[in-house]
Write a protein that binds this DNA or RNA. Structure first.
Lengths: 110, 110
DNA sequence: TTTATTTATCGTAATATTACAATATTATAA
DNA sequence: TTATAATATTGTAATATTACGATAAATAAA
């Protein structure tokens, strides 16, 4: 078949994997890094910075917007994008809870 | 086309997205959570815990092994899997550096 | 050796993702 | 109104991922 049966997993597991999936493409990592690096928000020059075609960048931005990690503000004929601070912080908490699980295996069987 | 041209991106961006891609499926999140929860390492009962077919679990374990986040130890007829502690810690550092980027946008344009 | 048990691999169908050309949409400027 | 500019959407081809049945491989037990 195709993709996961999300009913099989907890909401948290699905949330974690949803965030991770968005980070699972280097173009989106690059877009986010650029949005962090540029103090003011950015719009279409992402196409020049990343080096992918405009529809492709737009598609990646859409996925970042869908999961609410960025927001876009129409400014004339262009759109200003930036990190959604609150949601980024919330996402970080979710991911960190997962990453910071304790390793209790003393017996080190492997 | 299909997937990303990894030459377009930095090694770090590719590394981050590689880790994230592995976390981008709830079954692998569930497998890792189970490996953390069970103090001793685990092998084939992941099939029962997760609820996917044996070849599917084996496939997911392979991806986790490929990126070195788990290791497997043959014990008789079964295989004992556990978290690769050192690599998990290293991965955490890489991901956290990405997640903890400062948000410098004072002007809050969006 | 034969049988049972566990895991890995192969083959394959269903689905998802990625990238981009072409085009539509939206808003500004002339 | 008629360009012009920036972004979004549509359609589609190429590729990747996921899931699982069937089967192979490896080991232990009888």
């Amino acid at each position: 078949m195709g993709l996961a049966k999300s009913e099989m997993f907890t909401d948290k597991q699905n949330l974690i994997s949803s965030y991770a999936k968005v980070f699972g493409h280097p173009a989106r990592v690059a877009i986010l890094e650029h949005l962090f690096a540029i103090n003011s928000c950015i719009c279409g020059d992402l196409v020049d910075v990343i080096g992918l075609a405009q529809p492709t960048i737009s598609q990646h931005l859409k996925e970042l917007k869908n999961i609410s990690l960025i927001k876009g503000n129409v400014e004339g004929t262009s759109v200003c994008y930036c990190i959604h601070k609150e949601n980024w912080t919330a996402m970080k908490a979710t991911i960190n809870e997962f990453l910071n699980q304790d390793i209790n295996c003393n017996t080190d069987c492997c």
